[in-house]
């Protein structure tokens, strides 16, 4: 299959597909980070995660409209405001959902799955009613347009680079949040031993609410970043949800580093194969491999060694 390409062409094919894979990787990581916190730390399956992400994307879309209509002079910087707004909106909705729904279902994880699926249907239909069934896209500010040519054959789009840098930055922030901040320490304490955490004075219910909210908030930021590289429709979130769950499970649910590594493996495998096979075969092959590996190693790639 490689015979008809020359060596330099092959290198650039791999480089370009590798870059496409990195973009997919960014989307996976951004989505999976929130999910890893919610599923990995709290054991809650949030099927509406994709819809939280889309909410962030719609908030970004609205912000860009607002800026282009009322503050055109500041348009180049709207994205940072949008990201903050997206986080706040999805955090609030997430905390509310935890209070209204999730906290009653901690003892029944399978039922949480069904309830959040119901929530995702309601959110999808809400988006469709409010924003219409058609996909919307944001206008990129000038400094994100265009592409950067590394060699004659290899060109990388600037918005892609920006999303990747953003992904790295967010991952780093999440790492700091979970490892160093008070909330992160409290969350991990609650995960390890809920009763003892409560006994030493941690308000476990509040920690649950904030953890869920932060997970959703990160999904919102992911959605915000997502608008830079794709358009947003009411059902865009559902496209990624299974892949993301596989990423989280594959990485070993409670391990952020594992999540990143799993996202990297899956996205790279998929995009490299996509060039040589059809898109659907590449996806089938990737998912199938992941499922088979998970059957052989159900605990995922990386696991914390804790007693259960």
């Amino acid at each position: 299959m490689f015979a008809e390409y020359s060596m330099t062409e092959l290198t650039s094919i791999f480089a370009m597909q590798g870059f496409a894979g990195l973009l997919l990787f960014s989307v996976f990581v951004l989505m999976a980070l929130g999910l890893a916190i919610i599923f990995g730390q709290m054991g809650v399956i949030n099927m509406a995660h994709g819809e939280f992400m889309i909410l962030g994307a719609y908030v970004t879309y609205l912000t860009s409209l607002f800026f282009s209509n009322y503050l055109p002079s500041l348009f180049s910087g709207y994205f940072f405001v949008a990201m903050l707004l997206a986080f706040i909106t999805t955090f609030t909705l997430g905390a509310f959902v935890e209070w209204a729904m999730i906290r009653h279902l901690y003892k029944r994880p399978l039922d949480t799955l069904l309830a959040t699926w119901g929530l995702s249907l309601i959110l999808q239909q809400t988006y469709r009613t409010v924003f219409g069934a058609r996909e919307v896209g944001v206008t990129l500010p000038d400094w994100l347009m265009g592409s950067y040519a590394i060699t004659e054959l290899i060109e990388v789009p600037i918005n892609g680079i920006f999303v990747m840098v953003l992904t790295l930055f967010i991952t780093f922030c999440v790492y700091l949040l979970m490892q160093k901040s008070k909330l992160g320490k409290q969350t991990r304490a609650v995960v390890q031993n809920r009763a003892m955490a409560g006994a030493v004075g941690i308000n476990t219910e509040k920690v649950d609410r904030y953890t869920f909210g932060v997970g959703c908030g990160i999904a919102g930021v992911a959605g915000s970043a997502f608008t830079m590289i794709g358009s947003t429709g009411p059902t865009s979130g559902q496209l990624y949800i299974v892949d993301t769950f596989l990423v989280v499970v594959f990485g070993g649910a409670s391990n952020l580093l594992g999540t990143v590594a799993a996202a990297f493996t899956i996205s790279q495998a998929q995009s490299t194969m996509e060039f040589f096979l059809s898109g659907s075969s590449a996806k089938v092959l990737t998912l199938l491999t992941v499922v088979i590996i998970l059957m052989l190693r159900p605990q995922g790639l990386f696991t914390l060694k804790i007693r259960r």
Partner: peptide, 11 residues
């Protein structure tokens, strides 16, 4: 309605 059904039945 479907979403409400999911949530309602479970809760």
């Amino acid at each position: 309605a479907m979403g409400a059904l999911f949530i309602g039945v479970v809760m």
